[in-house]
Design a protein around this nucleic acid. Structure first.
Lengths: 228, 228
DNA sequence: ATTACTAGGGAGCGAGTAT
DNA sequence: TATACTCGCTCCCTAGTAA
């Protein structure tokens, strides 16, 4: 069954009362509720079961089913995903765990051409150091992937005596609902799909009193230009 | 595209900012966001457009799209459908417009065997007259259809000198969040899929001060037995 | 560079049926 | 009665490509 259909079937089971308790059903009974054949209802129930969205007991003349808390969470997540887009369009939210990177970020951010461009285009006077967050939820990795495909604010690269510094692109962001900053992507360079890099005018580790391993919430705002 | 997928695609467009304003996109740009091929994105955009969930303008080198208020409503409806099942499992909600039936309801309700059975099984001393509601939304017709397939509380039929009265089944209901009653289905008899019939101990037209043409909200509660 | 048509392949659906 | 398997058939998805 299609991913998008899962919460709908779970909701129909909830409507029938399968919330925190088993209900007695049969797959042919379900066909009017799922608007599917008995065979497909059987398949759907087994898929929901194998994905652990429902508990199932085969009894004489039917089954007992109950939506699991994983199933409930999945409905809630879907609902909140809709809600977020309705209340904050043009905006993505991610959460990741703080970790210490290679220190490259602070090296880059101390370079004058970057500093000047960040200030001019984003009004950010970058603190010498970036916040590295590791995304632990697949849904945030997907968001990060989608962001990587958007245009963002372009910060050009440059050279000094010793080496070349590549261009980056940024999206304005709010960290922990409080501090302004930006998510930064290196363009034409390795990008780890489960890592995001945040810059800010502030020393966020100090200001937010956060340490490696802490979960940090980031809201990323889009510009209005999508096609590169 | 599958019905269940529609709100997901609309939400992705909202995330990109297509809320109350046009965004410039291309179908190949969308493929990372929809997780579909360019060709399917094209098809999806056109399906959303033909169903009036989005507005579309073809421009040089792409399209401008914007989610319509019908699209927004559809997302909200889906979200609230999930929410209702989460907060009130084992419960359906419908809304219909009051109309005057053939008066059969009041005739039936005045029959002693029915009155006694309603009181014994549902603690309802039926007011001689039923509330007929015409469902105007397809989603409520679907709910009514699904209810018609559930077991409900059985009220047996009977005979008097002149004729036979068929059995009915009932589901406890709350009318306008205030008055208790029940939705009644005739068993083995014609059933209009867009009409529901409500009984109550109260004269609801008077108590609620409602007249033909008024919208009336009904919450129907399920018993715990599903298979007939 | 676009959109979107056509054609082929694959996934999903339901009828029939074994258990 | 059930569940759930196999097997066609259909529909949907994508690759190729026209416009």
């Amino acid at each position: 069954m299609k991913q998008y259909a899962i919460p709908h079937y779970l909701v129909k089971l909830l409507e029938l009362g399968a919330y925190n308790k088993f209900i007695k059903i049969s797959t042919s009974f379900l066909k009017d509720h799922f608007e599917m054949s008995q065979q497909s209802c059987s398949r759907i129930i087994n898929e929901l079961y194998s994905k652990e969205y429902i508990k199932k007991e085969i009894i004489h003349g039917g089954l007992n089913v109950m939506v699991t808390s994983k199933g409930i969470d999945y409905i809630i997540e879907t609902k909140e995903y809709f809600n977020l887009a309705l209340t904050k369009p043009g905006y993505f939210e991610m959460e990741g765990r703080l970790f210490t990177g290679l220190g490259e970020g602070s090296y880059y951010m101390s370079k004058r051409p970057y500093k000047k461009a960040f200030y001019r285009k984003l009004k950010i006077d970058p603190f010498p150091g970036t916040l590295n967050l590791r995304l632990e939820d697949e849904k945030y990795e997907k968001i990060n992937f989608r962001l990587s495909k958007l245009k963002g604010t372009y910060i050009p690269g440059f050279q000094d005596q010793s080496r070349t510094y590549g261009p980056v692109k940024c999206f304005k962001a709010i960290i922990e609902d409080e501090y302004e900053g930006a998510q930064m992507f290196a363009i034409r360079s390795h990008y780890e799909k489960n890592v995001i890099e945040i810059i800010s005018s502030f020393h966020l580790r100090k200001e937010l009193n956060i340490n490696d391993g802490d979960l940090v919430k980031v809201k990323v705002y889009l510009n209005n230009a999508f096609i590169d």
